[in-house]
Design a protein around this nucleic acid. Structure first.
Length: 762
DNA sequence: GTTGTCTGCCC
DNA sequence: ATTCTGC
DNA sequence: GCAGAATGGGCAGACAAC
């Protein structure tokens, strides 16, 4: 019944929804109550048990709940499919809905949070995107008709944000605080909650069951959308001493005031994972549809409503990717006609555009296939940090944004200082897309990503910059007052080259070559790798910049993508971590080890959480469960803080692919196999344990580490299970050490520096 | 002060 | 980052 | 092909605990 109420809340039966809410609470009383020490096990009410099953099923084990889901979906779904009619199908329900009937609150008053939570609950019952969008569209329309001022906070709650990415406002809330807050809100032990989290894989489910099992002494005032967002903002604002306590208190207060399905979504919102198949792109479409239908009514008078809906969602998506700020988007939509949106919300220096992304490819052949008949160009893919540099007033005002639109300006005082000198005469304003790469000024060489990552993140004085960077520019999005997003790459690149003056070791144009020959491309890929880059980005020359799209106009070609090429290791799973969300009930990740034949130990090398199909995930969990042991074997070498939830006997061997090896503070592969002095790229361990400077500047990679060399790997993923190998046939520690020594970039650096280090030590 | 844990954000 | 999956 | 949801290593910074 709870579910029916939730579904009806949006489907139009608002009275039923409101009326049933209390009884729904009661029915959910024994959700997961079994085994809880602080509650009597209520008599099993069959209906409630069914509800529980459905509720859990909606978030768990897709295979197990398919039947139920099918039934639920069938109850209220349009069966309309097909690409061309997508927009209309998505809005079909929304179109047929009498919005007035959805408004469960007094018009003009704050929208109850329950309205949004129930909308989420409805969305959670389906995986059909069109249905998700239509449900959300109806909810937004109701808000627009009832209390339009609440659309903005509702959108924030749907996208798990409190402010635009570039505003630098973070919640500062993670699982640990949430568990504490839930404990304090419900009077349960943290350990109980942790246990429930491990078994259900969802803090939202844990919160919902705790709260509904709780006898409430008085009825708190209902939460509102605006109120919840306001509290989220307060949580974000809290800083300084006892700020954690304050955050905990605020979350706890929200939980205490929440009922029904609210606590679950409060928890998930704070985790920034709604996990109902709804995220930014769908929210944008729903916004567009809701605004259109709100403004011009929901009747398809001319038979062209579908076109207009589709166009509206394109308009809104474009506006948002050019200017990713709901604070700007939503008011503009409310105040101006849709047709004028682009003139109010568009790319402008000072606000980061969503960067264009590249699509992975599996080889040169695929690249040539995709680009037959197009002119294209290859660029080195530098291994650093994406930077979008906004320059105004000839360099007097500069902002630097990350790939995810975070404001990184304080991190790069060196770029700010140097920038005016990079501007060619006549360049007043420009937006540069590029990669900031760690740079060794002595040797004039690129340094690995791990070095870059040691740079300070907060405001740093120019003189305190420890790691030099070189910016490799590869695109130009804005030039002297004009957006170039809609210009072809050829033109953007011409302007880029014309507007910047290279400065050795500080600013360079990305290396670019044009070729359409298989062998030449392969040679280029090798050159790129030899030049300390990750590979190539291949781009069509005639296409425009497509913010936020991983379009096939840019393809990335990395050595480790290539089938049969790149480093694969044969490793042994010696432990595992309980899965969360859709991986609840199986292991979500595994702890992997290599075999040290000298010491007859297993040394951890990395975790692994991707590359398996759902089927495989289930099968692996089944096959490894019998191998579970109570304690790690004495011959397992692992980092204490990386201990898994369960340990295994060494039984299987998996082939795992990864990008490269790095020095790890945690993992143990190759422990002691590379001499201490050679273990560090940029520092030298001395007997006292301090990390001595070797050259200036010195990023103290691994400075605080107790052990010489421990390797781990970037981007590990499963290739296959090796049925043909036993654990002792796994890759050995010494092989790992060899591979570490041979890594192109690192080797050169490590060898020369280590040699120098040896000399000095003597 | 130092150390350890948590979080966010790079990849 | 990589990968898988439903639509 | 898109959008969403699983998951990786590892760094600095902010706090809390010692």
């Amino acid at each position: 019944m709870a579910e029916a109420a939730a579904a009806n809340a949006v489907a139009g039966d608002s009275d039923a929804a409101a009326g049933d809410r209390d009884s729904a609470d009661e029915e959910m009383d024994d959700l997961e109550a079994e085994g809880d020490d602080d509650e009597d096990a209520a008599a099993a009410d069959e209906e409630a048990a069914d509800e529980q099953a459905k509720f859990k099923a909606a978030f768990k084990q897709a295979s197990a709940d398919k039947k139920k889901k099918g039934k639920k979906a069938a109850a209220g779904s349009s069966a309309v499919e097909g690409v061309g009619t997508g927009a209309l199908a998505a809005a079909k329900h929304a179109v047929g809905v009498d919005v007035k009937e959805l408004i469960t609150w007094k018009e003009g008053t704050p929208v109850p949070y329950a309205f949004l939570a129930e909308t989420f609950e409805t969305i959670a019952t389906t995986s059909k995107r069109l249905e998700i969008i239509s449900t959300l569209t109806s909810a937004f329309r109701a808000i627009l008709a009832g209390t339009p001022g609440d659309l903005l906070p509702a959108v924030y709650l749907c996208t798990n944000r409190v402010a635009a990415a570039h505003a630098g406002i973070e919640l500062g809330v993670g699982d640990a605080i949430l568990i504490k807050a839930l404990a304090s809100a419900t009077g349960r032990k943290e350990s109980t909650i942790k246990g429930d989290y491990e078994s259900s894989g969802d803090l939202g489910v844990v919160a919902a069951s705790c709260r509904s099992a709780q006898r409430t002494l008085f009825t708190p005032a209902p939460l509102t959308i605006g109120g919840v967002l306001k509290t989220f903002k307060e949580i974000a604002k809290a800083s300084g001493q006892s700020s954690q306590e304050k955050k905990k208190g605020l979350i706890s207060k929200l939980l205490v005031a929440s009922k029904g399905c609210e606590p679950g979504y409060i928890m998930r919102s704070l985790q920034a994972k709604l996990r109902i198949g709804l995220a930014e792109q769908s929210v944008l479409v729903a916004i567009a549809h809701a605004v259109l239908l709100h403004k011009e009514g929901a009747e398809d008078k001319d038979g062209k409503l579908a076109d207009r809906l589709e166009q509206a969602s394109q308009t809104v998506k474009t506006a948002y990717s050019e200017c990713p700020s709901y604070d700007m988007l939503i008011p503009a939509l409310l105040e101006h006609p849709l047709a004028e949106l682009a003139s109010h919300v568009h790319f402008m220096p000072g606000v980061p555009v969503k960067p264009m992304l590249a699509k992975p490819t599996t080889g040169v052949g695929e690249v040539l296939d995709k680009f037959t008949g197009c002119e294209f160009t290859c660029e080195y893919k530098y291994d650093g940090e994406r930077v979008q540099i906004h320059v105004l007033n000839g360099g007097k005002a500069v902002h630097i944004y990350s790939r995810n639109a975070e404001d990184m300006t304080p991190r790069y005082p060196d770029i700010l200082a140097r920038l005016p000198a990079w501007l060619a005469p006549g360049t007043d304003s420009i937006v540069i897309d590029g990669e900031a790469v760690a740079w060794d000024p002595e040797k004039g060489k690129i340094l690995p990503f791990q070095v870059l990552s040691t740079r300070a993140r907060k405001e740093v004085a120019l003189a305190d910059v420890k790691v030099q960077v070189c910016v490799y520019a590869f695109d130009c999005l804005y030039h002297n007052g004009a957006s170039l997003l809609h210009e072809p790459l050829t033109k953007r690149r011409e302007l880029l080259h014309a507007s910047l003056v290279e400065a050795p070791g500080q600013l360079a144009q990305a290396t670019t070559k044009i070729s359409n020959d298989v062998e030449e491309l392969e040679a280029l890929l090798n050159e790129a790798v030899d030049a300390s880059t990750e590979g190539l980005i291949v781009k069509t020359l005639g296409d425009t910049y497509e913010p936020s799209r991983r379009s096939s106009h840019w393809l990335k070609l990395k050595k480790d993508y290539l089938a049969g090429v790149g480093d694969t290791f044969d490793v042994v799973p010696i432990g595992a971590f309980y899965g969360r969300g859709k991986r609840a009930g199986v292991f979500g990740a595994y702890l992997l080890a290599v075999y040290d034949d000298e010491g007859e130990t297993y040394q951890t090398i990395s975790k692994l959480g991707t590359g398996f199909s759902e089927e495989q995930l289930t099968a692996l969990a089944e096959s490894l469960r019998p191998a579970i042991i109570a304690k790690p074997r004495s011959y397992y070498k692992y980092g204490e803080s990386g201990a898994p939830d369960v340990w295994f006997e060494p039984t299987q061997v998996w082939e795992v692919k990864a990008a490269d090896l790095s020095i790890s503070p945690l993992h143990q592969a190759g422990l002691g196999l590379v001499e201490p002095g050679k273990a560090y790229l940029y520092g030298e361990r001395v007997p006292s344990g301090a990390c001595m400077p070797r050259c200036q500047p010195i990023p103290a990679v691994a400075s605080a580490r107790a052990t010489p060399l421990m390797c781990c790997r970037r981007f590990p993923r499963l290739v296959r299970v090796r049925e043909d190998k036993g654990p002792e046939d796994a890759t050995t520690a010494s092989q790992v050490a060899d591979m570490y020594r041979q890594q192109a970039v690192v080797t050169a650096e490590a060898r020369s520096k280590a040699k120098a280090g040896d000399d000095e030590e003597m």
